[in-house]
């Protein structure tokens, strides 16, 4: 008798599940851990101010988020992918192959990437992109020959830097931040030092030369951090000579343990990033599946609310947390309200 009861209960559970799988009443978001704080702030305020449940925001990195985003359309798929880099062409193709054809791209603002070290550590106060290239490149031209990176201390790289062992903690390749670091710092430094030209002169094609510029040494002087900024911070805490790559918002929350260095002579602040003076910043995005708008309750409202002036404006809670407000926010608001998809622009 108890067996029958058990079977009944199990089948009831299965039925309830099947019914629930058909619909979903909360917005589901996944993606970049850099965008996660902003998305969680918006989600919380959205839950407070609207009659919809608070959206669910998962992290895991831009690439992982976009991969899940492109898995298909339906209540079991996420509605929004957060990304700290623009979506790639091959991701759009994967999306299209799985039926995700209409994607709305929303740029929410800009984020600065800062270079910080232990507050009591050596005086790392000013970096140039060329310092980072020379310190971290796998190979670089010395006296006309391309050799493996010989530098062991920052003073070797640039006499003005402290005589401390090179120990850099940079974001791992699954992070969108890595791409910005490679392009705005390593490649820039490569060009500035003339190494790019030297690579080309040595017989490389332009693409290969750029690849060589962005190749990072693997002898232990540079450590890829695949986790979050908290992991980078823990490494810096343990290594007085360590220099880490952080997001501006993370640094501003931990000013008691970190000191920041200028890049190209500019101190990273929301103002210098907004004006474009500070060289290492990148736009942050989220991507909406248009097919889910009107199906998942609150999705359109969430997107509108995210880019509204009260949230993403220069005095909103996102800016307070460290997001650099987008000067073209009005255009973004219009695009979100109209549901302008990527292809149609």
């Amino acid at each position: 008798m108890s067996l029958t009861r058990l079977a009944l209960a199990t089948s009831a559970l299965a039925l309830a599940t099947a019914a629930a799988a058909q619909t979903r009443d909360n917005v589901q978001i996944a993606g970049s851990s850099t965008v996660l704080p902003y998305a969680s702030i918006v989600a919380e305020a959205f839950g407070e101010n609207f009659d919809f449940p608070t959206p669910v925001v998962e992290s895991g990195g831009s690439s992982a988020g976009l991969a899940r985003f492109c898995e298909g359309v339906g209540p079991n798929q996420i509605d929004i992918a957060n990304a700290s880099r623009p979506i790639r062409e091959n991701e759009i193709e994967t999306c299209a192959a799985n039926g995700v054809t209409e994607i709305i791209e929303v740029r929410i603002g800009y984020d600065g990437i800062v270079f910080a070290s232990q507050i009591d550590g050596p005086e790392f106060t000013a970096f140039e992109p060329s310092d980072w290239f020379t310190a971290l490149a796998a190979e670089l031209p010395v006296d006309g020959e391309i050799v493996a990176n010989p530098h062991t201390t920052w003073a070797d790289v640039n006499a003005e830097l402290p005589d401390a062992e090179i120990m850099a903690f940079i974001p791992g390749t699954k992070h969108g931040t890595r791409e910005v670091f490679e392009e705005n710092v390593l490649l820039q430094g490569c060009e500035n030092t003339g190494a790019l030209q030297a690579f080309i002169d040595s017989g490389m094609s332009e693409d290969d030369a750029e690849g060589a510029c962005m190749a990072v040494r693997t002898d232990g002087a540079s450590v890829d951090i695949d986790g979050d900024y908290t992991e980078t911070l823990a490494r810096i805490d343990a290594n007085p000579n360590g220099v880490g790559v952080f997001g501006l918002a993370f640094y501003e929350n931990n000013t008691d343990r970190l000191k920041v260095a200028t890049m190209g002579g500019v101190e990273p602040t929301t103002e210098t990033i907004a004006s474009g003076e500070y060289p290492v910043s990148r736009p942050l995005f989220f991507y909406i599946k248009k097919a889910h708008i009107g199906v998942i309750p609150g999705l359109q409202e969430y997107a509108d609310f995210f880019v509204s002036d009260v949230m993403a404006g220069p005095n909103g809670p996102l800016a307070n947390y460290g997001l650099v407000s987008d000067p073209e926010l009005a255009a973004t608001q219009e695009a979100v309200a109209n549901g302008t998809t990527m292809g149609s622009m």
């Binding site: 909360n26 919380e44 839950g47 608070t54 669910v56 925001v57």
Partner: peptide, 10 residues
């Protein structure tokens, strides 16, 4: 299975 993040809000 997506249980880590800003989730436990409702």
């Amino acid at each position: 299975i997506g249980m880590v993040g800003f989730i436990a809000s409702n």
